[in-house]
């Protein structure tokens, strides 16, 4: 589904974040990218979401070379992938419902469909009834579940998660991973960056390990 072909990313001030990384992600698998912080996990995810462009190499999604995608098409591309962050990236002046509904609003869904899908997504992450709450009034685990609901509300085939449990305690982390596993069993492909060895060994279908920007097998 997703193929990395000799990817390098060079930053002018901090050197090579990734060098000559090649691997692929199979459709329907739950792949973990591991490594210490600074090993290039986040960079890899950012390149995949086209938040940044690689210095060298190509990324193919379903056979399509992302390097050829012009900037103006990036928004439409991003609507087809779900993104989950360590710091949740929620809008704190909006309600939980509005946060989850935002991707649908951006994609131009009508109000009824937006409400229906947002409620369904909140139900799937166990936050039914939280619609009117503000993210600040929720616990970390609940906030991350809002983030997950926002990522799945457009039903993307691929979800990229960057240290999704980095700020959560072990029990909550396992809960979140079990939630990922449920979505994965319904066909969603996951690429998860994590340095939590325990979680990785328990949930990973396959692991890609990075060290100082290089792939280690």
């Amino acid at each position: 589904m997703l193929q990395f072909d000799d990817i390098s990313k060079h930053y002018p001030d901090s050197g090579d974040a990734l060098s000559h990384v090649s691997f692929h992600v199979e459709r329907g698998e739950m792949l973990f990218v591991t490594g210490h912080s600074g090993a290039g996990k986040s960079t890899l995810l950012r390149l995949t979401a086209l938040i940044e462009r690689p210095s060298r190499g190509n990324i193919f999604l379903n056979g399509r070379n992302l390097a050829n995608m012009p900037d103006r098409k990036i928004p439409y591309f991003r609507r087809k992938i779900g993104l989950i962050f360590q710091d949740y990236r929620l809008l704190h002046d909006c309600s939980v419902f509005d946060n989850v509904a935002l991707p649908l609003l951006i994609s131009g869904f009508d109000a009824r469909e937006t409400a229906r899908r947002s409620r369904a997504a909140l139900g799937k992450v166990g936050l039914a009834g939280f619609e009117k709450r503000k993210p600040m009034s929720l616990s970390g685990g609940e906030q991350q579940r809002v983030g997950i609901a926002r990522a799945i509300v457009t039903r993307p085939p691929l979800i990229l998660a960057d240290e999704p449990t980095g700020n959560l305690d072990p029990d909550l982390s396992i809960e979140i991973m079990q939630m990922f596993r449920q979505f994965n069993q319904r066909g969603v492909t996951f690429m998860i960056a994590s340095h939590n060895a325990q979680l990785v060994s328990r949930f990973a279908d396959r692991v890609v390990h990075l060290e100082k920007g290089r792939l280690v097998t």
């Binding site: 928004p75 591309f77 609507r79 993104l83 990236r89 809008l91 935002l102 991707p103 951006i106 926002r150």
Partner: peptide, 16 residues
């Protein structure tokens, strides 16, 4: 700015 960045990440066009 934070809101705009999040909207961009979620696929909002500049027009939007």
């Amino acid at each position: 700015l934070p809101k705009i960045e999040i909207m961009k990440i979620l696929g909002a066009t500049h027009t939007f």
